[in-house]
Design a protein around this nucleic acid. Sequence first.
RNA 1: GUGGUUGUAGCUCAGCUGGUUAGAGCGCUGGUUUGUGGUGCCGGAAGUCGCGGGUUCGAGUCCCGUCUUCCACCCCA
Length: 460
Amino acid sequence: MAQKPSIPKGTRDFSPVVVQRRQYIMNTIKHHFEHYGFMPIETPSFENSDTLLGKYGEEGDRLIFKILNNGEYLKKVNDQDLHNKNEYKVSPQISKRALRYDLTVPFARYVVQHQNDITFPFKRYQIQPVWRADRPQHGRFQEFYQCDADVVGSDSLLQEVELVKLYDTVFTDLKLEACTIKINNRKILAGIAQMIGAQDQLIDFTVALDKLDKIGADKVKEEMIQKGISENAIEKLNPVFSLEGNFGEKLEVMKLLLTDSEIGQKGIEELEFINSRIIKLGLKSAVLDLDITLARGLNYYTGCIFEVGAPAGVKMGSIGGGGRYDDLTSMFGLKDVSGVGISFGLDRIYLVLEELGLFPDSVRAGVDVLFVNFGEKEAEYAMDLVFRFRESGIKSELYPDTAKTPKQRHKQIKYAERNEIPNVIIIDEDEMAAGALLLKNMITGEQELLKPEAVISKLK
RNA sequence: GUGGUUGUAGCUCAGCUGGUUAGAGCGCUGGUUUGUGGUGCCGGAAGUCGCGGGUUCGAGUCCCGUCUUCCACCCCA
């Protein structure tokens, strides 16, 4: 091997235990998705470029992986564009496909494309990888999994209520307690922007506001001024900057502030509804919090927006996010279909569970029992038992090579230890003569001589 | 995309202001002992010092480029 091979930045290999743990998270999420009535779909890893481009804002377009065309793709490129090294013009000429950036936009495309086969409201879930050409950091990868649940074809706020409960259910089941489900409403943000005369700069305004808890009110004001929002207008925002109290109290302040804004009031009403229902239903471990600074960059949100923060003390960006989008399918030609959905960030949830030591011991790769192979007759005797064990639902395997020396026996026990196999069954002449098995617990070191049936019922 | 940071045996890291054959712990492996691992003792293997240039009599150590890691922006899962 001349040079060590490597994988691209922001990607990872997953070893058996890691895969097992990832599947534990995925299965938990999937289980609850299905209990809430969502049905699975899958879409291709890559889409036509025009399906994805322009849906996530300028920043999003930059982070979309573009796939180079096949064949003599340079022949068709405009010479002038090539000569000028204008990547914005050349790029669409040499790349007609791109890796998906999230699961929501491909889903919107799916809904439009299959609208005649879909019964609305349509609830789907999707667990697949997505790709972003982002610079990697802790919890930030170029290839990662999203677990999405979306409902299209219903503008009922009960969906938002259900999705908040779904977050709580999943995180509770994962023993990930005290997550914060932050909620806000784009209509409120629009109302505020309107009130200060910045309705045309909604994006700039929200992006700046989003940084409040990070850089502080003064810096946010600075940024807004830089974006051309007047100082007078910003003064009106003071109540927003100093918002305090519980959900209801914060909402009251906002309600007063937005008295003159119709859209703002609509947003307030929506949040009041959701909050009242959630209070009634209760949450098991998560906390629902109104975060008026929550903006989320994705352009297509129009109503409620969500973002889930890991428990306090864990250094990790959001582990989930979502919101309502009213016009996403209209971009593909289907009007008046409202959608709302949430996403779980599998890879980040993994890192949080790992940091907090929350993976159950039962989640591990490998079998429950190893049968040692101390002789050919013994192996034959053991093989029958291995199958009986498996039929009883016990993950079992027989060590393939027959030990001919003490050293090789040694190696077999060591194999069990290395693979964290919790039980070893030793069969030698004595055991065969007695029609019994010697069960060794690798954790305690205890051994007992038992009949096969007794071992099965013990391990089951 | 911007600024910074990291990269030395399988793993975690030492290697001061450039100077002879690059070290430790853990792991791995061979021996010893227990029908069967975890303990002990004795021995062993293993590194183009990320990669490519440059400065120098001489570079793991300085300079440049590049890749990777992590961090702060940006943005987000």
